[in-house]
C-alpha cells in the first residue's frame, strides 16, 4: 500500500459521507422504518469482505481460524442482506404498495 492509495480511500470515504448526507432530505414518517431497513440491508455489503477474506483463507489452506471467522461473517452478512431486503419489501407492500394511483 502506498500513501497515494490510502489518500484515495480516504477521499472516497469522505465524499461518500457527504453524498449520504445529501441523499436523505425529507422523508415522510411512514417511510422511516422501511428506509432504515433498506439501508440496513445495504450495510450487509461486508459480504464482499467476507467473500474475499474466505478466498484468501481457504487458498492458503493452513489458516483454519481465520477461515472459520470469514465463513461465519459470510453467513451473518447474507442473513443481513437477504433478510433485510425481503423484510423491507414486505413492509413496503403493506404500507406504500396499497397506495394505488397516489
Amino acid at each position: 500500500m502506498t500513501p497515494e492509495m490510502l489518500i484515495g480511500s480516504i477521499t472516497l470515504f469522505v465524499l461518500s459521507i457527504f453524498l449520504g448526507v445529501e441523499l436523505i432530505t425529507k422523508v415522510p414518517a411512514m417511510l422511516h422504518t422501511p428506509l432504515m431497513s433498506g439501508a440496513n440491508a445495504i450495510s450487509g455489503i461486508s459480504v464482499v469482505g467476507a467473500l474475499l477474506g474466505a478466498n484468501v483463507a481457504y487458498e492458503s489452506g493452513d489458516t483454519a481460524v481465520s477461515g472459520i471467522l470469514a465463513f461465519v461473517a459470510l453467513v451473518l452478512a447474507m442473513i443481513n442482506v437477504v433478510g433485510g431486503f425481503a423484510v423491507t419489501n414486505r413492509m413496503l407492500n403493506m404500507i406504500a404498495g396499497k397506495k394505488r394511483g397516489a
Binding site: 461518500s16 441523499l23 445495504i42
Partner: peptide, 29 residues
Amino acid sequence: IAAAFTGFIIGNSVLIVAGSLVGASGLIL
C-alpha cells in the same frame, strides 16, 4: 461505518462507498 472501516482493511472501494453512504444517510434519518 463498520463496513466502511472493513473496506479500508481489504482495500475495497465498494465497502468504503456503500458503508459510508449508509453511515451518513442513517445518521440523517
